[in-house]
Design a binder for these strands. Structure first.
Lengths: 340, 340
DNA sequence: CCCTCCTTGGTAAGCGCTTTCCTAGTACCG
DNA sequence: CGGTACTAGGAAAGCGCTTACCAAGGAGGG
């Protein structure tokens, strides 16, 4: 691998000069030298060693993002927005998949610290696990203390700025829609119990029930894994226990798609016999039959905001900034009034 | 940020000792010192600077992967397999999205070289653009010359080892299925013309036509973008031009889903009036109605193989190794015999 | 014509770590 | 008890780059 010194030697100048030319430093350099050096760079196919640069400059540049899984469309969207902004300011994005394992998140915070990341973006739901939250928080605080910036997407119990989607309102919109259509016996397929996303959405659903003078009994809530298979399984369990449900609210679209598949296999018509609604408005929501009524979250935008938040230091140092992102009901064909 | 020297100072030992303890070097260290150092590490929340380590060790560790877009399920699957293997051997994976812009690929090769990546995995289709191919190849060769390893997924015109999915056979399987069912007028919705993936799949389709004593006229091939919207648009164009098609083969599932949506909107029954087949067997293929007949590629496996290939130096230096991954027809409900 | 000031390029001191080589201390043998 | 052979820890030389500081030379003014 060609080094700065090699280039300097070939061009017959000092390393300092090469460095200045290659990085476009403010220091003026004679045109003749400049060309000679550039020619040497080209000849040796010189590319500066990013690690050495980082070490010498000692100012961080990369941005780390910790998600449950990038291949999940939810995080893919967020990551896309995030990458756009980061790339615009010439920063490398390091993507870390925790696969919903809390310990992995801790490891990754450490790794990003080791990588001298300028900021860590924590995307995805938090866990209801106080011990873990405390540990993570203390690790984050250490990172912050050494100048690291932190932004969190979709949870709020951590240090650092936050972009929070309005999960509670989203749940409310879904509940309001179903109760408004006249449904009375509604089953809910929630995500993992320990995720705050899950509980927030349920709280919204409950509030809608209350507003419609109904209630949502705990036995009608089944917990899944936010994936398709668990959606189908949960729907089966729900229908077996409560055969006369008229609507099922799945708390994300993947599970809703699973519900749709199960209902089809049992010959249950949607929405004529049972209405189904999802959450997140993933691309798939509009591709299934019937197209899914769901709640849209501005995911790309959320990713972009998180980076922006992380990169621009808070004007005044008073406390973390929080940006709320609103949820929106997308009405499609999978929901309708219950059969009389 | 605490440094090695800080730890050494706090523990009252030399930096060398701390380094040895922290990295678990082979050199034996007295237990008492060891504990004192570990305590200091804990107290200062010391994490070694990865860049400094890299520089000092001067041996590469990260793996770079260049894909069109990770949020595309096709690449998401590949990346997942790749990450698994890479993480097992303690390597950082740097994901680069080219968004199908050739220049971006060149930039990323440079970036990965700067990052001292141990290997570059090039995933996704190549381009039919000789100038570009030559440039990329020369950049890759420079990288290779300095000890970088290269593996390529799904194309073969480059230096380095390759994992190639059998696109041609996949196309053949699709064609064989449709012609075998009795279809005679088949429309094809291909991907971008300049991608080798597209042309390989078409070649397979043509071979199947020949084997069935038919042919596939160029006017029945429309080129899309591998995304849903272009699938729908292409299907519309195809049907307007050739109203009596009995089958449409989309060369990936996203476009097939678009086709399905368009047909539904026009009230065309699938597969009774028109059969539809896709390619890739993305998760969505089994979620749409009717579920999509398609061709499965072992994507996760391909990602994993690519890393393995890249990391283990070829036993004998004779030429790049090529691993073929077989395609498999997945028969679902979207294809059937043409209406008599 | 001399002195000063500015311009341009070079010198060298790190950035935080690893690792080779060395030294001092200990154990063991004759 | 003296000498050899290890052993455990430290000193220091880089890894490839940036940048503060310095020096030399030329221009311009008195």
């Amino acid at each position: 691998m060609a080094t700065l010194a090699d280039v300097a030697h070939l061009a017959g100048v000092s390393p300092a000069t090469v460095s200045r030319i290659v990085n476009g430093s403010s220091k003026p350099v004679a045109e003749a030298l400049r060309l000679r050096v550039l020619a040497a760079v080209e000849e040796l196919q010189y590319v500066p060693n990013a690690h050495a640069q980082l070490l010498a400059r000692s100012h961080r540049s990369a941005i780390g993002v910790i998600v449950h899984d990038v291949s999940d469309p939810y995080f893919a969207e967020i990551t896309r927005g995030l990458q756009r902004v980061a790339t615009e300011s010439g920063r490398l994005v390091i993507i870390c998949n925790s696969y919903r394992q809390p310990e992995k998140e801790l490891e990754y915070v450490e790794l990003l610290r080791a990588q001298q990341a300028a900021a860590i973006i924590l995307a995805g739901s938090g866990y209801h696990d106080d011990a873990f939250t405390t540990t993570l928080n203390s690790k984050l605080r250490v990172y912050q203390a050494t100048g690291g910036r932190i932004a969190v997407i979709g949870r709020h119990e951590y240090v650092g700025d936050a972009v929070v989607p309005d999960n509670e309102t989203g749940g409310y919109l879904l509940g309001d829609e179903l109760y408004g259509l006249g449904h009375r016996r509604i089953g809910v397929i929630a995500g993992p119990k320990q995720l705050t996303t899950t509980t927030d959405r349920i709280v919204g659903l409950r509030r809608a029930a209350r507003d419609h003078q109904r209630q949502l009994p705990a036995r009608r809530i089944v917990y899944g894994d936010f994936d398709r298979a668990s959606g189908a399984a949960a729907a089966a369990a729900l229908l077996d226990a409560e055969p006369n449900l008229t609507a099922i609210a799945a708390l994300n679209d993947s599970m809703a798609v699973g519900v749709l598949a199960l209902l089809r296999s049992r010959g249950v018509a949607v929405p004529d016999e049972v209405s189904v609604v999802g959450f997140d408005d993933m691309p798939i929501a509009s591709d299934v039959t019937p197209a899914l009524t769901t709640v849209r979250l501005p995911l790309t935008e959320m990713g972009a905001r998180a980076v922006t938040l992380a990169l621009q230091p808070s004007a005044d140092g008073n406390g973390p900034r929080i940006e709320h992102m609103s949820a929106e009901l997308i009405r499609r064909e999978s929901s309708g009034p219950p059969r009389p």
